[in-house]
Simulated scan of single mutants.
Amino acid sequence: MSYEIEVENIKCSGCAGTIVKRLSGLDSVDEVQVDVELGIVRVTGDELARAEVCVLLEVLGYPESGSTSGVNSVKAKAKSFVSCAVGRFADKPSD
């Protein structure tokens, strides 16, 4: 089964790289694709584990759209900056 989750705070391929890497580590996920421009995460895997995927996305700073507000929204943005930086660093070729 495949499903889509619209998320907040995706800014670049570094964000996408972090999301793909971390979600791919879940047993319930077979494949992950991220549309940076639309802010959509497409997951192929067990749809019953959607809640687990959403929790991990929130931990990474990419909560499902409309699921956070106020202080929690600010915290999510801060986490996403860190995840973004980690993703960019991981994508960088070594010299």
Rank of each mutant, 00 (worst) to 15 (best):
S65V: 13
K11N: 08
S2E: 11
S24Q: 01
G70Y: 06
E31D: 14
G45F: 01
M1T: 15
G45W: 07
V74F: 09
F81A: 15
E37Q: 04
R42T: 15
V36I: 14
S67A: 12
K79L: 05
V36L: 09
L26H: 04
V20K: 11
T18S: 14
I19Q: 00
A76M: 02
I10V: 15
Y62F: 15
E58T: 12
V86F: 05
A85V: 14
S73W: 01
P63N: 01
T18W: 08
C15L: 04
K77Q: 15
Y62D: 13
N72W: 13
K75A: 12
P93D: 07
V55G: 01
D46I: 07
D35W: 05
K92D: 10
D30A: 11
K11R: 14
L26R: 00
S28Y: 02
Y3A: 03
G45P: 11
T68V: 15
L38H: 11
S83F: 05
V41Y: 05
R50H: 02
A78Q: 10
L26Y: 03
Y3V: 00
G39T: 09
L60K: 04
G87V: 10
E64D: 09
S13G: 15
D46G: 07
E8Q: 14
P63L: 04
D46S: 13
E52L: 01
V74H: 08
E58H: 10
C12I: 04
C15N: 05
A76P: 14
N72C: 01
S2P: 04
C15M: 06
K92I: 12
